[in-house]
Computed example of a mutant assay.
Amino acid sequence: MEEFMKRLVQVQRDIPWLPQAKGRTYIADELPPLERCATAFGLAFEGNRLLLTRLRDRDWNLTGGCIDPGETPEHAAVREVREEASAKVEVIELIGYQELQKFFPKPPDYRWPHPIDCQVYFRCRLIELSPFEPNPKASTARSSNPAKRDVCLRWRDSRRSTKRAYGALRPGNQGQRG
C-alpha cells in the first residue's frame, strides 16, 4: 500500500495579493478536495528553462488560472498553459498546492471557495511551443531559468518553497520531490 505524501514547506501570513489570509504551501502527491480547488498552474520546461507568461494585469507569472465549472484541475492547467503561453502540454504529475485560508467575510460576488481554497501546481511535459500571439490575458511568454532573480513572479514572496518545487521539476530530476 502506497503512503500519501503531503509535506508543509511554507506558511505565509498577510499575503501581499490576498490580505487577511494565511497561505500554507504543500508538496503533495494527492489533490486537495476538489471543491476547494480554485486555480491550477502548469509548470513546463523548455530544456532547463521554465515557461512563463507576462500577464497584462500582473507582470511575469507562472502559467495557470481559474478552474472553470465542470473542469478538472489537470484540464485547467493544460488549457491555461495553451491560452497564456501558446504551448501544448500534458500533465505528468501533481507537485503540490497552496491552501489559502481567508479571515474575512465572504463578499457577495466572491467566486472562489470560502474560507479555504487551493491553488494546484502540476509538472507538465512540453509537447509543442507555437509562436506566441498576444491575447486578452497575456502580452508575451518566454522561458527563463527559475533560479534567476530577473523574473518577477506573483509568488515572489514564496520563492523558497517554489524553488524546492522547481528542484523536483528540473528535467534531470523527474520523479524526485523537493
Score class of each variant (00 low, 15 high):
60 W>H: 06
93 E>V: 13
55 L>M: 15
147 A>L: 14
12 Q>M: 11
146 P>G: 04
170 R>T: 06
100 L>N: 09
137 K>W: 13
10 Q>H: 12
113 P>I: 03
153 L>N: 01
22 K>T: 15
63 T>N: 14
23 G>A: 15
84 E>G: 10
48 N>Y: 00
178 G>A: 08
2 E>Y: 14
58 R>D: 09
88 K>R: 14
139 S>E: 15
130 S>M: 10
158 S>Q: 06
21 A>C: 07
16 P>L: 07
171 P>E: 00
80 E>K: 13
131 P>I: 04
118 C>Y: 07
50 L>F: 02
155 W>E: 07
41 F>S: 06
87 A>H: 06
135 N>D: 01
178 G>D: 10
21 A>N: 08
28 A>P: 03
165 A>T: 01
126 L>K: 00
81 V>R: 13
32 P>S: 11
55 L>T: 01
5 M>Y: 14
162 T>I: 02
112 W>Q: 12
52 L>K: 02
20 Q>K: 13
82 R>W: 07
133 E>R: 14
29 D>K: 07
152 C>Q: 12
27 I>E: 06
142 R>Y: 07
100 L>G: 03
103 F>L: 08
30 E>P: 07
29 D>F: 02
115 P>S: 06
130 S>G: 03
172 G>R: 03
85 A>M: 13
23 G>D: 06
11 V>A: 04
60 W>K: 01
